[in-house]
Design a protein around this nucleic acid. Structure first.
Length: 520
RNA sequence: GGCGGCGUAGCCAAGAGGCAAGGCAGGGGUCUGCAAAACCCCCACUCCCCGGUUCGAAUCCGGGCGCCGCCUCCA
C-alpha cells in the first residue's frame, strides 16, 4: 500500500493516485510578502517540504510549484505607509522568507512564480470567464458569479445561499450576490495597475493561483496545498475560477491543508501581532530544533508554540544527535575491521524495523509523531550497543555492519523530516560556532600560555587537553571551572570513561543569542 | 447563525473496536572525582462528562460540557 493523504475535498484519508504514475505535481500557496516570516509560515513550508521529501523517498518525481503573492492590498498599504515603491516591500520580505526557508532546510520549489509576472495569463483567464458568463464587469471591477457554478462550495462546504448575508459586501461594490468575489479590481490612485479590457486595474487575489498553477501544472494536477485558513474563500474560489475556465473537473485531485500554529490559544498571525519571527527563533534555537518542533506534531492538528515546547524539542534533537555521534565514535574505533556479531545483527534488525515502522507511519497521512517514535526506538537500540562497547562488554568490531546500517537508517529517516543532526550543515549553527571559536580563543589564552589553533575543533581540543592535565593531577577545581566556562560559551563537555567528549548546546543557552527573546 | 476541527499522564503527543507508541519532566539504580550523557527499572487499570451498542470501546452511536479555526487579509 502506498501513501494515503487526507483530502479536504472528500474529508477522508485516501490512497494517493497521481495523474501520471510515478510523478507528483504539487502546488502550494506561498507567502504574501508584506511582513516578516513567522513560525506559522514555516509550519506550512515544513509540512509540504516533508511531503515532498517523503514522496521523493517513495520514488516519485516531484514537481513542486509555490507562488509568491507580490500584488496585494497589504503590500500596497505597507508601501504607502513607508513611502516606498511596492517593489521595495516585496523584495525585502521575499528575501526574509527565503532566508527563513533556507535556514530551516526547506527545499526551494522547482518553480516560484510571482503574481506580478503573470498578469497577462490572469487577464486571459478573466476574459474567458466573462465570455463564458461566469464573471461580469461592474464598473471596472470584475466579479465571479458564484451562482453560475453548481459545484461552488464543494471544498469548504460553504454554500452561497448560506453565507452570512451581506458579510462580504463593502461600500462601493457592485456585486450581484454577496458571495461573488473580485477577479479584477479597478485601479485606485497610487496603486500598481495594468491595462485590461475592463480598464486599468489589478487582479483579485485568488486568480493568480488559478492562472499560475494551470500554467505550470495544468488542469487536474495532483496535490494543492496550503494552510487551512485558505480553504475558504481562497481555495474555494480558485476551484470555481479554474473549473469554470477549463470547463472540466477537477482542478486539483487532492487538497492538503496544514493546521495553524497557535500562541496561547490563538492563531499565530501577522494581524494579531502574536507571532514569533523565524529570525528571532533562530537566534535562540538551532534550525534543527525549530524544524523538529514544527514537524513533530501531525500536520492537521493545531500546535501551540512556546519556549517550553522548543526546549523539549532541543532535548529530543540532542538525543538523536548523541546517538548518531556515539555511533560514529564506535565506527571510527572499529575502523575497517568488522564481524557480524550478535550486537551487529540486533542493530540490523532494529534498522529494518525502524524503516518499516517509519514508512508505515508516513504512509498513513504523514504521521510524523508516530514515525518519530520509530526513530527514537532505533536511537535507543544504538545507544544500548554503544553503551556496551564503551563499558567494555562488547568489542567495537562486533557491532560494525549493523551499526553502520542503523546509522544510515537514522540518517535517512531524519533527513526526510529535514533534520540535519550535524552542526556543519546548519548555517546558523555554523555561524554561531565561529563566534564560539573567537570567544574560546580568548578563554584559552587566559587559561594557558600556549596559543591554540584556529578552528573550533583545535581550540576545544587544546582546552580539553589542558583540562585533562588538571584532572590527572586531581585538580578538580580547575577542571570544573573550565567545564563550567565552556558550558557558558555553549560547549558541553561529557567526561566519558573513554575521555572527554564535547558538543554544542542546542537549548536556549546560546552564547551569541541576543537577549530580546521572542516577540509576543 | 453556517462550515470544520479538537479534548489521551505534570507538560507535549501517537493510537481509532481486543492487553494505552514516543519525547520532555519526575523517582530509584549502574557508570563517574563531580556534573553531564548513556544504559536499567518505575511513572495513565484509564483516555472531558453522561447514556447506549458490543463478549469487549480511548476508539462506534446519541446527548452534554469546554476549547479552537474559517465565514474579512492570512500559512
Amino acid at each position: 500500500m502506498g501513501l494515503r493523504l487526507h483530502n479536504t475535498l472528500t474529508k477522508r484519508v485516501e490512497e494517493l493516485v497521481t495523474r501520471e504514475a510515478g510523478k507528483a505535481a504539487i502546488y502550494v500557496c506561498g507567502p504574501t510578502v508584506y511582513d516578516v516570516t513567522h513560525l506559522g509560515h514555516m509550519r506550512a513550508a515544513v509540512v509540504f517540504d516533508v511531503l515532498r521529501r517523503y514522496l521523493e523517498f517513495r520514488g516519485y518525481q516531484v514537481m513542486h510549484v509555490q507562488n509568491v503573492t507580490d500584488v496585494e492590498d497589504k503590500i500596497i498599504a505597507r508601501a504607502q505607509a513607508e513611502g516606498v515603491p511596492t517593489d521595495a516591500i516585496t523584495v525585502r520580505y521575499l528575501e526574509d522568507y527565503r532566508q527563513a526557508s533556507r535556514a530551516l532546510n526547506v527545499m526551494p520549489p522547482h518553480v516560484e512564480p510571482h503574481a506580478s509576472q503573470h498578469i497577462p495569463e490572469m487577464i486571459e483567464m478573466i476574459k474567458k470567464l466573462v465570455e463564458g458568463g461566469y464573471a461580469y464587469d461592474a464598473e471596472g471591477d470584475v466579479y465571479f458569479d458564484v451562482s453560475r457554478l453548481p459545484q461552488y462550495g464543494k471544498l469548504s462546504g460553504q454554500l452561497p445561499g448560506e453565507l452570512r448575508a451581506g458579510a462580504r459586501v463593502e461600500p462601493g461594490e457592485h456585486k450581484r450576490h454577496p458571495a461573488d468575489f473580485a477577479v479584477w479590481k479597478h485601479a485606485k490612485p497610487g496603486e500598481p495597475n495594468w491595462d485590461s479590457p475592463w480598464g486599468r486595474g489589478r487582479p483579485g487575489w485568488h486568480i493568480e493561483c488559478s492562472a499560475m498553477s494551470l500554467k505550470y501544472l495544468g488542469m487536474g494536477f495532483d496535490i494543492h496545498g496550503g494552510g487551512d485558513d485558505l480553504i475558504f474563500p481562497h481555495h474555494e474560489n480558485e476551484i470555481a475560477q479554474s473549473e469554470a475556465y477549463a470547463a472540466t473537473q477537477p482542478f486539483a485531485r487532492y487538497w492538503v491543508h496544514n493546521a495553524m500554529v497557535m500562541v496561547r490559544g490563538e492563531k499565530m498571525s501577522k494581524s494579531l501581532h502574536n507571532y514569533i519571527a523565524v529570525a528571532d527563533a533562530l537566534g535562540r534555537f538551532p534550525a534543527d530544533v525549530i524544524r523538529y518542533a514544527l514537524a513533530a506534531v501531525h500536520y492537521r492538528k493545531p500546535m501551540e508554540v512556546d519556549e517550553a515546547r522548543l526546549q523539549d524539542a532541543a532535548k529530543a534533537v540532542d538525543r538523536l544527535r548523541i546517538a548518531l555521534a556515539s555511533a560514529e565514535t564506535i565506527l571510527a574505533r572499529a575502523g575497517s575491521r568488522s564481524t557480524d556479531g550478535p550486537a551487529s545483527r540486533l542493530l540490523r534488525k532494529a534498522a529494518e524495523s525502524a524503516r518499516t515502522a517509519f514508512t508505515a507511519a508516513m504512509d498513513d497521512d504523514l504521521n510524523t509523531s508516530s514515525g518519530l517514535a520509530a526513530v527514537f526506538e532505533l536511537a535507543a537500540e544504538m545507544n544500548r550497543v554503544t553503551d556496551q562497547v564503551l563499558k567494555g562488554g562488547t568489542d567495537a568490531t562486533e557491532t560494525t555492519p549493523g551499526l553502520r546500517e542503523a546509522r544510515e537508517a537514522l540518517r535517512t529517516i531524519t533527513a526526510i523530516l529535514g533534520l540535519r543532526l550535524d552542526s556543519a550543515a546548519d548555517e546558523d549553527l555554523a555561524r554561531r560556532v565561529r563566534d564560539l571559536a573567537v570567544s574560546l580563543r580568548q578563554e584559552a589564552a587566559q587559561l594557558f600560555s600556549e596559543q591554540p589553533g584556529q578552528t573550533l575543533d583545535e581550540i576545544v581540543a587544546f582546552i580539553l587537553a589542558g583540562r585533562e592535565q588538571a584532572r590527572a593531577k586531581r585538580d578538580f577545581a580547575t577542571a570544573d571551572r573550565i567545564r563550567t566556562r565552556m558550558a557558558e560559551a555553549g560547549i558541553l563537555v561529557d567526561d566519558l570513561p573513554t575521555g572527554p567528549k564535547w558538543r554544542i548546546a542546542t537549548d536556549g543557552r546560546r552564547p551569541t543569542a541576543d537577549a530580546s527573546g521572542p516577540r509576543a
